[in-house]
Simulated scan of single mutants.
Amino acid sequence: MINIFQPSLGAEEVAAVAEVFESNWVGKGERTAKFEAAFAEHLGVGQDRVMTVNSCTEGLFLSMQLAEVGPGDDVVLPTVSFVGAGNAVASRGARPVFCDVDPRTLNPTAADVEAALTPVTKAVIVLHYGGRAGEVAEIARLCRERGILLVEDAACAPASRVEGQACGTVGDIGVWSFDGAKILVTGDGGVLTARDPGLVERGRKLTYFGLEQVSGFSQARQAGTRWWEFQISSFSRRSVMNDVQSAIGLVQLGKLGGFVRRRQEIADRYDRRLRGTAGITTPPPLPGGQTSSHYMYWIQLDPAQRDQVAADLYAAGIYTTFRYAALHAVDAYDWDGWLPNAEHAVAATLCLPLHQALADDDVDFVADTLLESVNAR
């Protein structure tokens, strides 16, 4: 089976984990601090603005807590988004308000976001679909003008930039994912960054039980203290990354540039094979000033054919999917509305295999099988 996502892990990651085991410390420690510093450098921000979390979803939940979102508040987010974003809003007792998306990029435009704002909108969450920045700069300006906090779900965009600025740092809070289906993989884990370092400082306590003094071992160095005693500032949970994940992350971060270059080569090959083909719509070119992480490559087909084409590809040993199912159609969110661009995209879009381990022959096989299926309809 040609997988749609696949990590690239090898001997260097194994060696890094072995060093952690030999240190006899596998919890959050020195390597996690080093990974935070390295990721901050990658983003071009200060280390005081970056913290690790155990998943991107936890970062989204934490962002809503840091934004003090609660009952009576609305949070605008694109309906084509990950369920973790919708759950993060609803878990605070707030109302998710879903906005439409551009029918080809599947990212929300500034106009889409503005149309969904209400008098009680407290925050906006945007997803960088497939690794593309979209209109995040314009959305950020809109949010600043309205006094609304902007959260960037940059799970798909670890190396994406707009006018040289890293996605995830354009708004007020950004979150990233390192799970097994992402580009930079640590198994699980994530990062949260904030424009205000004070939010990160507060976030560190919220991800470790609300403890005022995190390390009794460090406190023990001070004479005259009872280092086993503690105080808490909130009723919080434990949701940190550890040194095993961080050691893998440091190796993967060093490879990220090469991963993205290979993914771009694959996307370009798909473009050459598929662009201009009757019955297949490929992603539009990137706007000037933007770079993509090329997390996903998607095509759009006649909705009456899309599911059968996916079945044909699967029968040939090619796994495809559609991400992300429209959240406004999820009954639990109790949303009543029609979003025409998203409705079309959800019915027409199919994501093709894209990961750095794909060989050119694999890409050609996917393209050939796709063309054969579409031409047979």
Score class of each variant (00 low, 15 high):
N3M: 07
F5K: 03
S8E: 10
L9I: 10
E19P: 03
S23Y: 04
K34T: 01
F35V: 05
A38H: 10
D48Q: 14
N54T: 02
T57N: 12
L60P: 02
Q65S: 14
P71S: 11
L77H: 11
L77N: 07
V80A: 08
G86T: 11
F98I: 11
P103C: 11
A110I: 09
A110D: 07
G131R: 10
A133I: 09
A140P: 07
R141T: 14
D153M: 09
A157F: 09
S160Y: 10
R161A: 12
G174D: 02
G180K: 10
G180Y: 06
K182Q: 12
L199A: 10
G203A: 13
T207H: 01
F209G: 05
F209P: 06
E212P: 00
R226T: 13
Q231R: 15
S239A: 15
V244I: 15
Q245R: 04
L250S: 04
L256Y: 09
G257A: 15
R273H: 00
G276T: 07
I280V: 04
P283K: 00
P287C: 03
G289D: 02
G289P: 00
Y295M: 13
I299L: 03
L301M: 04
Q305S: 11
R306T: 03
D307Q: 13
D307K: 04
L313A: 08
L313K: 02
A315I: 07
Y319F: 14
T320K: 04
T321M: 14
A325W: 05
V330E: 15
V330I: 13
V330R: 14
P340L: 11
A342G: 10
V346A: 15
A347P: 03
Q356F: 01
N375S: 14
